[in-house]
Computed example of a mutant assay.
Amino acid sequence: MISEAERTVDLGAPYDLPRSLGVLQRGHADPAVRVDRGVFEGGPRGAPGAGAWLSLRVPSADRGDAGGSSGRAVLRFDQLDVSRVRARVAADSEDASAAALNRAPLVLGAADDWTCLELLLDALGDRVSTALATVRRRHPGVRLPAAGALFDQLINVTLEQKVTHEQARHGWRSLLRRHGDAPAADWAQGAALPVPEWLRMPLTAAQLRAVPSWEWHRLWVQPPLSKTIQQIARRASAVHRLGAETPVETDAVNQLAETLAGIPGVGVWTAAETLQRSHGAADLPAVGDYHLAHFVGEAMTGTRTDDAGMVELLEPYRPHRQRIVRLLKLSGFQHQRMGPKLTSEDHRSR
């Protein structure tokens, strides 16, 4: 039986759906997340006409995903006007439908409040902070989404460890296309929501464990990564318990990052990237990223830096360090490497 439901989420301010949810899409052909940009105006007028598809699994309350028992749900978002987004869901049970619909505001970033950062930028008043405040005023509708599905996000990010974007996108895309469930085929006769044929569900732990070793090689997934994925799959119940709630307090999210980093093969970078997507982590920059420290250093000072230098540059903005990284990426700096550079000032003694 297909269960469907609908609600309208009012973000209470201009909302930029494409730029907010676009960070969840892994490549232009992601089989699990796809953003329709519409006219993509953003800014103070929001982005009416934009939309997005999102597939997610809802673990059963009693067994998690240890035995492969989970509900399947598909969310469709459509931005109606400046601040309102319609969320529709189709799922294979009423429980999965209700859980997905309850998740919808968090996916959109409804719990992500930038007010304190905006006040901090104004209070600091240096050149970097002033420039970042200007970027925020140009993009007031950008939120950090909290998509949930901690297990799925962890698998996705693991595929991105120490490989090129092309390899990571290929691995995720091929894994879902070859081994993921296709809701459109299963629900063709029952769902009013027109689920697209390309959409696939993330794999359960049982499905991941069933993928043979030679198939991982065919998927362009290196042996260390497939080994880590199997480690995570064996710990699926524990991961689902960790993801059962979505804490918004910085300390709680940081503690969760430390717990995830304790899984063999995961590490600090993977934990941060995962929680940025699953929990909308506002203060977890991806330390250990191959490019990020260079980018942050060059954008803020005109000179590349390493991870320690990036952490030092971002320290005055704690507990909003990932929001600062997001603003730097929204600034367009990566397209102006030879242009004027932002200059950082040290506020640690203030």
Rank of each mutant, 00 (worst) to 15 (best):
63 R>H: 07
113 D>C: 08
164 T>G: 03
332 G>F: 13
298 E>S: 13
1 M>Q: 11
346 D>Y: 10
75 L>D: 13
46 G>R: 01
92 D>K: 03
84 R>L: 12
264 P>Q: 02
101 L>Q: 11
168 A>C: 07
18 P>C: 07
219 L>H: 01
326 R>I: 03
197 E>I: 02
80 L>C: 02
198 W>S: 11
343 T>W: 15
251 D>E: 11
263 I>Q: 05
287 V>M: 11
61 A>P: 04
44 P>S: 05
170 H>E: 12
95 D>F: 15
81 D>K: 06
22 G>R: 13
243 G>P: 10
177 R>C: 14
191 A>Q: 02
169 R>A: 15
34 R>F: 14
140 P>Y: 09
278 S>L: 04
6 E>Y: 12
119 L>E: 14
159 L>V: 09
73 A>I: 13
214 W>S: 14
257 A>G: 06
246 T>E: 11
148 G>K: 06
180 G>M: 07
3 S>H: 11
212 P>Q: 14
47 A>Y: 04
1 M>A: 15
164 T>N: 01
214 W>I: 12
110 A>T: 03
223 P>R: 15
88 R>K: 09
28 H>E: 10
349 S>R: 10
216 W>P: 14
297 G>H: 08
341 K>T: 06
46 G>K: 02
29 A>E: 12
134 T>A: 14
215 E>C: 08
60 S>I: 00
234 R>H: 01
143 R>F: 10
228 T>R: 05
25 Q>K: 11
175 L>A: 05
137 R>V: 02
168 A>S: 05
181 D>H: 15
91 A>I: 08
110 A>L: 04
43 G>V: 08
208 L>V: 08
233 A>N: 01
263 I>H: 00
259 T>S: 03
